[in-house]
Structures are given as structure tokens and as C-alpha cells.
Design a protein around this nucleic acid. Structure first.
Lengths: 204, 204, 204, 204
DNA sequence: GATGAATGAGTTTTCATTCAT
DNA sequence: AATGAATGAAAACTCATTCAT
């Protein structure tokens, strides 16, 4: 079914055009017309891929999450546990141009999700997935005995997740103050402070 | 003599109407028309107070920052230092309805600032002020000898600021998971982990 | 395949609707709305033909000039030279309803061009073309030896052009005082006074 | 009654502010607000001088004509007749900054008068006055025997008036091509061609 | 399937005018 | 008398969506 593949590919191309418009002009200018122009398509033919603007935007938001997930899935985790956890975390941070693009777009969608129910659902789903990932990180480190015994697991999860999202926010707003090296340094620092008993060190 | 109206007060009333619209329907529906209706003014008369929509929105964004600043200025800091620092931090977190409202509005504006130069300027200014406040918190705790000696001041500032903004974000997106008590608990926890040598404890 | 519409023809129809509005109500009422209504189109669909009001008005102004040019181009100049020159001149004068319409519209645009840079450019271009035509008329008559030798060519050009534009103005403002016969008489008179040596006479 | 004088003076100041707006931005931007701002008055207080916008604009148009009339009235005509006639004509041409301003404003109003009945009346009245003045010029020169006998008086009047208004138009549109000296040269040239029998010459 | 014409509702902004003080 | 607040209408322009071809 080659047509299907083309169809899916075309949808991604349109969504990426949407990303470019959103980054350049903001979500409020991500009109069907502007996106069609950016994708070099006619307004009419975009309707074959997306039945409405909401559908297009929801797909574009979903694509950000999918791209991040598939990066994480492709990660080689045959490394010492502490470094593996760090790798997971680093995948969510804007330390490359591509990831910076995604973070900017994600942030725009997140703000929109506050008042747009159709986006809100996706925002919550993704929030849940990430929360689950950070839960995994903390429980792993804890069950490996890297963390000191009296730590509060739930708070550590919330602290780590908040730290990461706060860093994403600050890096997006202030990219020049948050180069890849700085983001990595903050994560290394936090993980080290969490894991005084780790036998691995975060070589860098 | 013209009709006497408290110009400044009227501007605040309009800005607060803008907040309500933004919270209810999002920034993209914060049209002059909708805000005028919410403020129970005619569109035309709103122009006496704000010459353009940008001006209105910039003022509304500024007001969020001003409200937070004045709350901080009114704080009674005649308390043990660690508790004082905590009070400063807590003022920025959405632990009341009023502050939740401000946070939601602030988040919408922040996302918009990514692509709107006039808002970007204000976003950066406020970012600088907050960064300075967190710098103050960390250097105070450090110079009081509460923190262990080998901590990296710069990273601690960035970590604290990111943690706080991440918490704001999560609390706004997931208010039911982040009641006031939870926000306070995370902050207490972080401060305690920073200050193993503090003579004060954070009574709760 | 899209609905088939003659794009160029449609633009002319809209521009002619604009002319009618301008003649009836003046340039200041030549709003997009009024022109759309006159053209029996929706405001929105006029945007397919003209991206903005300025574009529409510039096109409408250009059309006046184009119509006059093409009339001149279609002129049969296989006549005695003096009569040929007269025919050129007469094409610019409002001696028919159609030409009166064009002159009225042209005058409205010319006044607007004083303060509207996009129209000013066109006004100057057309001014140049007409000036060139009158230059041609004077130099032709001169090189044929029709004019007396001591005439100042440059001044004669300016005098002829000013006379013609002044007549257009007066005929537009006072049509009942300037019927076709009167306009022709003034031009005949001026040409005769210029060409005492002409072997042709301007039969009338 | 000093108040009355002030009132009249104030009206002139407002009208001159209107002129400045019209010259700078065009008649379509000569709104009550813009004129009030230019005149440094409040919108409300302008209502004490002009009951409506039409009234203000009509007065502003009238003022152009009045200024020109009073300049002509103040003219010293104790000079040879041909020079006197030239002086009359030159008063209507834009050969100084002040007169250029009036001509520009007049042209804007004249175009508007085509479709605005309240201005049309004034335009016609002024047209009549000027026509009368040019009639006077031609009949004077004729009765003095300066002109050759076989001239057509009526056509000469229309020719002179059209020439003058055409020159005004061209000078306003192309000021750099029509400095004072050029305007004067064209008028001198025309008068000389009209008056081959004049004993006076137009010294220059 | 693909295109672009068409539409009507929406946006911000400017405006003349009225009115309370 | 003088001011500026208030209003509702009208302006240009953008938009998502529908539809004929």
C-alpha cells in the first residue's frame, strides 16, 4: 500500500511546515493558509490530509512527542546505570537545534493546551509518560542502592521532573545562557547529588 | 472639567478583565472585543486607556510581574534566614487561587513572548529579576554557612530557579496534583537538601 | 481543476466597479466593502484578485492610463500632420462620457497621489509619458516648419501640456461649459496659433 | 468685543492645522482627532469653533480662497498694464512655499468637491471669481489694443485660465521642475504671444 | 485527488459625535 | 468654556471552511 506511506509522509511534511511557522511567527499565526504556503501546498489539497485546523495542530503536537519517544527508544542503554538514566533525561532537553525546535513548539502547544481541551488531553497523556519515565529513573537509582536511604521517592520524582521542565523552559527562553554543556552540567550535578553511593561516576 | 476617572485604576480593571479572558479562553481569544465585553466597556472607550492591543497585553503581562513583586516587597522577613528564603520562593508558586491565576496568565504570555518581540523584552527583564532573587537566596544560604562547602553556586542557582519554574508549570497544568501543601513540601525538601548545616529547621 | 475564471478580466471588472464608486461617492468612499458591493462580489473573494486595498486602487489608477494609451495606439494617423497631432491631443480630453469618467477618476487619483507614495510613483510615470507625447507633438510641428522659428520649444511643451491638463480639470469640474465642441475649439485655436505656417488647416 | 477676534483667530489656527495635516497625510486623514492634535487642542474644545467636521473642512477650503483674494487685493497695480495683468496671474501660481502649500490644499479640496456637494458649491464660486479675473485680464489687454484684432476673446479667456490651472497642477505635482522662475517664464511667454502690439515689455 | 474561488465571520483600528463634569 | 470619557459604526484585513471544476 504505497499510497498510505505517501499519505503519512505528506502529513509529517505538513506538520513540520506547521512547526516552522509556529517557531517563526507563533501559534496564533499558524493558520491553515500560512502553513499551506510554508508547505508549498494549496489550501484545498491540505484538506486531503487534515480535515480541519484542529486536527492538523493536534497532529503537529503529537509529532513532537513521537519524535522524542522514538529517540528514546533508539537509545543504546548498554552503559552503566547512572549514565543510562542520564541519557534518558538528556533526550528531553534542548541540546541540539533539532531538539530546540521541538521544545519551542512543545512549549507553544503546552500553553495553548491550558485552554484548548483537544490539546489538553494530549498534554496530559504526554505528561503522564514523562512522569512515568522519571519515576523509572528514580526507582531504578533507588533500588540499585545509589541513593541514600531516607530520600522521599515521590518528592524526588517531582523534583527531577520539575527541574527538567524548568531547564527546558529556561533554555528555550534563553538559549545563549543554556548551551548543551550547561544543561548537561546541571543534570550531572543533580544526579550526583542524588546518588552519593553510586559506584559509577558521570565521566565528562 | 472632564469626567473624573481614575485612569490608573481603570487600566488595572481592564487588565484584570484580560486575565480572566486569557484564563478562560486563552491568549488567542484575548481580543479587544472580548476583553471589552468582559470589562463591560465599549471597544471604543478601551482605546482611551490602551492605544493598541499590544499595549494592553504588554500592560497585562507587566501587571502579573508587578503583583508578584509587590507581594514579595510586603513580606515580613523578620524570621530565621532559611524560613525567609523559603517565603521568598513560595511567593512565586501558585499556592492560592489568586497566584494560580497569575501563573496561568504568565505562562500564556511567556509562550507568546517566544515570537512576540514586545513581550520578549518584558519576559527577559522579569527573568533577570527572578534570577537575581534566586541568586540572592543561594548566596545568602551559602554565606551563612548553611550549605556544604563544595557546592557550585552557579549551578545551584540555575537548579533552584529551574525547579521553581518547573513546579509552576506542573502545578498550572495539573493543579489537582500540586496543592499548596505539595508545592511547599518540594521546596522544603530542596532547601533541606541544600542546607545540611542549617541550625534552623523548616517547621511545618 | 479549479473553477475557471478569467483572472485578468475579473480584475478589470472590479477596477471598473471601483471607478463607478469613485465617480459617485469619491475616493474616500472607495472602500473595499463598497467596491465589493458595486462589483456584486463578497469582500472576501475580492481578495483573490487584489491582496490589499492599495493594490486595488493602484490597479484602478493604472487602468485609466492603460485605457488612454490603448486608445492612442489604435489611432489612425494617416492624416495630415497637424490633424494627427490634434487627434493625439484630443484623446486625453474628456469629450465623451467614457473619457469623462476616466478623467474624473484620474483627477481623484492624482490628488490622492500628492500624499500617497504608491500612487505618486504611477502619477509621475504617467506624467512622464504624457510629457513625452506633448514633446513629440511640439518637435514634430517644429521640424515640419509649421511653427515660427523663434519659438521656445521647452516652453511650448509646458504650455501645451498645462493647457491640456487645465482643460481637463475645467471640463471635469464644469462639464456643461465644456462640451466636446468647446474642447476641440480651444485645441484647434491653440494649434493654429502655434502653426501660422502650416499648409494644412484644421477643417471643422 | 475681543472675544470675537480671538474666536476668529482661533478658527484660522485650526484651519491652518488642518492644512498641515492635509499636506502631510492627505484629506482622508484630516480627521477631527488628527487636526485637534496638530492644533494642540482637545477634541472637545474644537467643537466650540466648528460644529462638525464638514464645517471645519469647508472653512479650511474657504480660507485658501480668502488668502489668495486678499493677496490680490493688496497688490500694487500702479505699474504698466501688461505687468499689472501678469502680477494678477502670478498671485495664483505656487511660486513661494506659502502659495505652494495653498495650492496643494486647494487641489485636495477640488478633487473632493467633485463628489462632495458642500465643497462643490464653494469650488464653483471660486471658479467663477477666477474666471472673472481672467476675463478682466483678457478684456483689458484687448481694449488697450495690445492683442491682435482677430483673437477670440472667449477662447483666450479659457485658454489662459486652463494654462494657469494646468501650471498649478504641474507645479504641485512636480515642484522641482517648476521653480518660480519657470512659472514666471511660461506666463511671460504666453502674455507676450498674446500681446504682439504691447508697448510695454515684461522686463525680467 | 487537487485546486483555487467564494464566503461570512472574525480580527484590530480609526472615526465623528455626544455627553458628564 | 473646556476637557476627555464614552460609544457605535465603519474601516482594512485574515481566517477556516465549503464547493465547483
Amino acid at each position: 500500500m504505497p499510497k498510505i506511506v505517501d499519505h503519512a509522509k505528506q502529513k509529517e511534511l505538513v506538520a513540520e511546515a506547521a512547526w516552522r511557522v509556529i517557531r517563526r511567527e507563533g501559534l496564533q499565526h499558524a493558520s491553515v493558509r500560512n502553513i499551506a504556503e510554508e508547505a508549498k501546498l494549496s489550501v484545498g489539497s491540505m484538506r486531503h490530509y487534515f480535515g480541519s485546523q484542529s486536527e492538523l495542530l493536534a497532529y503537529s503536537m503529537q509529532l513532537v512527542s513521537d519524535r522524542c519517544s522514538s529517540r528514546i527508544r533508539r537509545l543504546d542503554l548498554n552503559v552503566p546505570p547512572l549514565e543510562g538514566m542520564k541519557k534518558l533525561i538528556m533526550e528531553t532537553l534542548p541540546d541540539t537545534d533539532e531538539k530546540r525546535a521541538e521544545s519551542e513548539v512543545w512549549m507553544a502547544f503546552t500553553a495553548q493546551a491550558l485552554t484548548d481541551p483537544s490539546l489538553k488531553e494530549l498534554a496530559h497523556k504526554v505528561y503522564g509518560h514523562l512522569r512515568y519515565m522519571f519515576e523509572h529513573v528514580i526507582t531504578q537509582l533507588s533500588s540499585l542502592g545509589y541513593m541514600s536511604g531516607d530520600l522521599d521517592i515521590e518528592i524526588e520524582i517531582q523534583r527531577l521532573y520539575a527541574l527538567v521542565d524548568g531547564l527546558v523552559l529556561h533554555a528555550v527562553l534563553n538559549p545563549e545562557s543554556y548551551p548543551a554543556s550547561r544543561l548537561e552540567a546541571v543534570i550531572d550535578y543533580h544526579l550526583r547529588s542524588l546518588c552519593p553511593n553510586s559506584p559509577d561516576s558521570l565521566a565528562k
